[in-house]
Amino acid sequence: MAFIQTDTFTLRGYECDAFGRMSIPALMNLMQESANRNAIDYGIGIADLAQKGFGWMLMRFCLRMHQYPRYSQTIQLMTYPTTVEKYFIHRDFRVVAEDGTLLADASSTWLVFSMEKRSMVALPDFIRSLSPPTNVDPLPTLPTKPDFQMAAFSPTDTKRVEVGWLSIDQNKHVNNVAYVQWLLEAVDADVLQTREIAEIDLVYRTESHWHDWLEIQSMDETDSSIRHRIVQTESGKDVILARSRWRES
């Protein structure tokens, strides 16, 4: 059986920024919540996987903001799996206003890891056998390695953070949205106050844990795009690579 998750939310003050726009981390948190509800219907929620010794890990995520929801606005968020492969499952998101206006959409790629070995495994049969909806128009599948992942990176700004307890999720690693908040907080103050994100494209490379020290790096790519990188201070491993595109707000 195929399931499409549809949730309705009315934006609260703490989900909005200083200008009353919904914040990117708040939206991503709601998307993650809806995705887990959808996964539960399919029998592949966080608890379902944990019972079998597995966990979910986000590998790719690309969010496009067409029009920002604002404080007290009611939105409808839909999510559903689109394609199931040997190692990856792809999931789309759509956010619309009450009148049907498309506010945002996102595509994502997820993998499963062994809780014991903390390493990627092929999708178990109980996941590979699920049936994605057929009455949807899926977004293009994200490339495993986008162009910015392979390009040279010379950071112009670096900040350090220590992973706190409240950034850890049920899979015992840093929640994917926490990284996004850290990399956005590192953006130049003038950009944050005069522009808004049009798109953010993320590659998650490895997990990090409580008390890890991370370096949040950024570099201007063009007048309207910024490259981001988060690195484990001790190991030097890339945790996340990203590109954000900005427009006048």
Rank of each mutant, 00 (worst) to 15 (best):
M1K: 04
A2R: 06
Q5W: 01
Q5I: 01
L11K: 02
G13S: 14
E15R: 05
D17A: 04
F19Q: 09
M22L: 12
L27F: 06
L27R: 04
M28E: 07
M31P: 00
E33P: 00
N36Q: 15
A39D: 09
A47V: 10
A47K: 09
Q51H: 07
G53W: 08
F54A: 05
F54Y: 15
G55L: 07
M57G: 12
M59A: 15
M65P: 01
M65K: 03
H66R: 06
Q67E: 15
Y68H: 08
P69V: 06
Y71V: 04
S72Y: 12
I75L: 11
Y87P: 01
F88G: 01
F88V: 13
I89N: 04
R91H: 00
R94V: 03
V95M: 13
V95F: 05
V96C: 14
A97L: 02
L102E: 15
S108C: 01
W110G: 05
V112A: 10
F113D: 08
K117F: 04
K117V: 08
A122D: 09
D125S: 15
I127L: 13
S129T: 12
T134M: 07
N135P: 00
N135H: 12
P138Q: 13
P140R: 09
P143C: 07
P146V: 07
D147Q: 01
F148K: 08
F153W: 02
P155N: 08
R160Y: 11
R160E: 15
G164C: 03
W165V: 00
L166F: 14
L166T: 08
S167I: 00
D169G: 08
Q170W: 10
N171R: 03
N171A: 12
L183Q: 11
E185D: 15
A186K: 07
E196S: 09
I197G: 01
I200D: 09
V203S: 15
T206R: 11
L214V: 09
L214M: 14
I216K: 04
M219G: 00
D220G: 13
S224H: 11
R227C: 11
R229L: 12
I230G: 03
E234G: 02
E234Q: 15
G236K: 02
K237L: 08
A242E: 05
